[in-house]
């Protein structure tokens, strides 16, 4: 790293007396965050506070709003659809995140092995779904998972299994949606996990091999603990994504069948399209609380001892 930038070069081109006065160290961070803060406050914080305030009103988009206190919140907390949407997201989380971590880790470990050929090809292949426009993906899914004509059931029939109503039964719609999400985002998680793997020093394995540890043992006692924080990062990231998931069920199932794929994100969107902006806003802040609680939980659970 020291070869990248030598202090001499720095001094050579940038005179010492020139910079110090006009950007003191105490002021510098404020200057650095300023461009970001300007945009952030104007287009994130302001609308967020607006929304927070909206959540205590019955505003429907026109005219004056009426302050309703915690009404929207208590309505949601006593509403089956709201809890149902959270439950749907929780089940989807269970279907997605553990599978994604295991599968992602497996693929990352394989891709981290120099002996595997065509690694560039695999990296691209796993990331192609990630870059495919979602609106096209929705159409693909509807056709591929059709009960009678879809490719998936065609394959099942080949091995003697019966047709499955992938998108038309409430038992299977969630797994199908989970599969779409896995398909679309696992490539990204693989890359993140790969980054964790690559930061492990090869010498650790050499030491372990000399000590006679089997490779399976090495995986579980060396690799997994060392990538724990990377795994945690992925888990938190995907928890946010799963609970906010809106576009996928919106374009593929529209929440059906039987609202079994009405995710937390889709449910709040439905409030908004119904014109019930206050309830939609309240719903989203309840979601923030849920997601924050979960994040804290995972962080604690997966934290390394240090």
């Amino acid at each position: 790293m020291s070869t990248l930038v030598g202090p001499e070069r720095v001094r050579g081109s940038q005179g010492r007396p020139l910079l110090r006065p006009w950007l003191p160290r105490k002021v510098a961070p404020y200057v650095f965050v300023l461009p970001f803060v300007a945009i952030f406050v104007a287009f994130s914080v302001y609308p967020m506070l607006f929304t927070l305030r909206l959540s205590f009103t019955d505003w429907r988009g026109s005219g004056a709003a009426r302050w309703v206190g915690w009404d929207n919140y208590t309505y949601l907390l006593g509403n089956d659809m709201f809890w149902g949407s959270l439950a749907n997201s929780a089940v989807l989380w269970l279907m997605i995140v553990p599978v994604q971590v295991v599968l992602g880790l497996l693929v990352a470990v394989l891709l981290n092995n120099a002996k595997i050929r065509m690694r560039s090809f695999y990296r691209i292949a796993f990331l192609v779904p990630f870059v495919t426009p979602l609106v096209a993906v929705a159409q693909i899914w509807v056709v591929v998972f059709d009960q009678e004509f879809g490719a998936v059931n065609g394959l099942l029939n080949l091995v003697g299994l019966p047709d499955v109503g992938w998108l038309t039964t409430s038992e299977w719609a969630k797994p199908t949606l989970a599969l779409l999400f896995l398909w679309k985002t696992t490539g990204f998680i693989v890359i993140i996990l790969l980054s964790g793997l690559q930061s492990i020093d090869a010498s650790v394995y050499e030491a372990a091999s000399i000590d006679g540890a089997s490779r399976t043992r090495q995986l579980w006692s060396i690799t997994v603990p060392l990538v724990r924080r990377t795994v945690m990062f992925s888990v938190v990231l995907q928890t946010l994504a799963v609970f906010q998931m809106f576009a996928e069920p919106f374009v593929v199932t529209d929440g059906g069948p039987y609202n079994s794929t009405t995710t937390a994100g889709l449910h709040l969107y439905e409030n908004i399209t119904r014109g019930d902006l206050g309830t939609g806003a309240a719903n989203s802040f309840l979601l923030v609380v849920v997601v924050m609680g979960l994040s804290l939980l995972f962080v604690r659970f997966l934290r390394t001892e240090d």
């Binding site: 909206l54 505003w59 005219g63």
Partner: peptide, 11 residues
């Protein structure tokens, strides 16, 4: 932030 808020009923 946000729309004007009235304390009473809407029209």
């Amino acid at each position: 932030c946000g729309p004007a808020i009235t304390s009473g009923e809407t029209d």
